[in-house]
Design a protein around this nucleic acid. Structure first.
Lengths: 240, 240
DNA sequence: TGTTTACTGTGTCTCCAGGACGCAATTAGA
DNA sequence: TCTAATTGCGTCCTGGAGACACAGTAAACA
């Protein structure tokens, strides 16, 4: 893996935008396409769900559709575009906001929804955290988050920053839960002998880690979201 | 690129731990090594700084050292381990805490230091956000962050969560600043025509984005850190 | 002062991913 | 019916990670 794929380039970016925001396909000449973009994205998503993002190659997607790699390039310009399409469908549409709930409840719910969806498809986080152009679905999530903040005395930039703060937190947490195995129990076990030897150099860390091993990790989500909400509330109060 | 590299496996992880926390090298038989782990990591870092993480291949590192790819495998088991070593040296040691400053100042300074260092080496964020075993330097950063929180009535887990929250925010921000070009001005420009067409579907987003285009992006850092600090302060007050 | 032997340097080979290119088959529109 | 756009897809090329084997080298020991 190259693990990264810098794109952000002008040309590629335009392709991505066109694909993500594509309207109805005009009638075309020639043979009917045997596949569809949606079908390809679904196949890729299924593979990613089952075997991780690494397992998604043009090859593997093509095989799961019963065709060959090069046939896919008729539908999707390249891997970058496929990633963008996968990302924008990964989370699904945001849940409708419960009308009438106070902003801090709505915002907390929103963050929890993002977390739940992201946790169900950890690979989407990997994609979401590369620089990318948001698609319709991702923008809908932003829209619903902004709606929760609509009544607050914050500037547009501040509202976006608030959502970014929550999203950043949620993504960080999801990154540490590789689905199956032991999350940080494994890590702690591996690090423990080393830390024990050097206890003197890392007194606070040792205390915090040993004390932390009891509580479940979901607390981190609750804690972080609550702190952010409290911080925003403090600002709102300050401004009246 | 494969962009990702799941490892987290038991065997590989042990190698990583051994390398990161290696002590003095015992005297060995045979020819003196011509290179050193530090030298290799430095070379790789130089390449990453200049041309990005994608440009770091065993090949390119070897060339910059005047040797061949396979020679490097005598020092570093593989790419995963090289990444781990690069990460742990990327940020450098944390600055000493200004003694006597109140916790919220110390914590804010800490977050700003993390941001400054990460911004100087954006590729380190990519590495830091994969699941990984922390090395001595990374742990030293944690240690210094925990020191800032030492006096607060929080549990160990809560302190760690607080730092994770800040780090998550900082990393999110750095991800959006690909060094050179226009950060989100470019993105906004690309998205603008699409959004304009569908203004009705995304009223809040449109308002927030257009309103936000003025302020610089450093405000996001300040805003986020301030919110978190305020949120933590609220909790601390609550507990006396 | 040999001699042993672990350790280093490195060329070659394999596997696999992304992607360019071109040709044959197909079918909507004129 | 004819034609031109469009699809399906085989072949080829460019890397990158890593396995392996073998030759050279020097520290340790008798």
């Amino acid at each position: 893996m190259g693990a990264e794929r810098r794109d952000t380039g002008a040309k590629g970016g335009d392709d991505v935008v066109a694909l993500l925001w594509r309207g109805a396909t005009p009638v075309r000449r020639g043979p009917r396409p045997r596949f569809s973009i949606d079908g390809i994205v679904t196949a890729a998503t299924t593979i990613a769900d089952a075997r991780g993002l690494d397992a998604v190659t043009m090859q593997s997607v093509a095989e799961s559709l019963g065709t060959t790699k090069m046939a896919l390039y008729r539908y999707v310009p390249g891997r970058v575009e496929l990633d963008a399409l996968m990302l924008d469908t990964a989370l699904g549409t945001p849940p409708p906001a419960a009308a009438g709930s106070p902003w801090h409840v709505a915002l907390t719910d929103w963050a929890r929804s993002v977390h739940a969806r992201a946790l169900a498809r950890p690979w989407s986080v990997e994609l979401a955290q590369r620089p990318h152009v948001p698609g319709p679905v991702e923008l809908a999530w932003f829209e619903s988050g902004l709606a929760a903040l609509a009544g607050l005395p914050l500037t547009g930039a501040e509202k976006l920053d608030t959502l970014a703060l929550l999203v950043g937190h949620v993504m960080s947490l999801v990154r540490q839960q590789p689905a199956g195995a032991s999350p940080e129990a494994d890590l702690a076990a591996r690090l423990a002998p080393v830390l024990a030897e050097r206890a003197g150099e890392y007194p606070h860390s040792l205390a915090a880690f040993t004390g932390a091993s009891s509580g479940a990790r979901d607390d981190a989500l609750r804690f972080g979201v609550a702190r952010v909400v409290a911080g925003v509330a403090a600002l709102a109060d300050e401004r009246g």
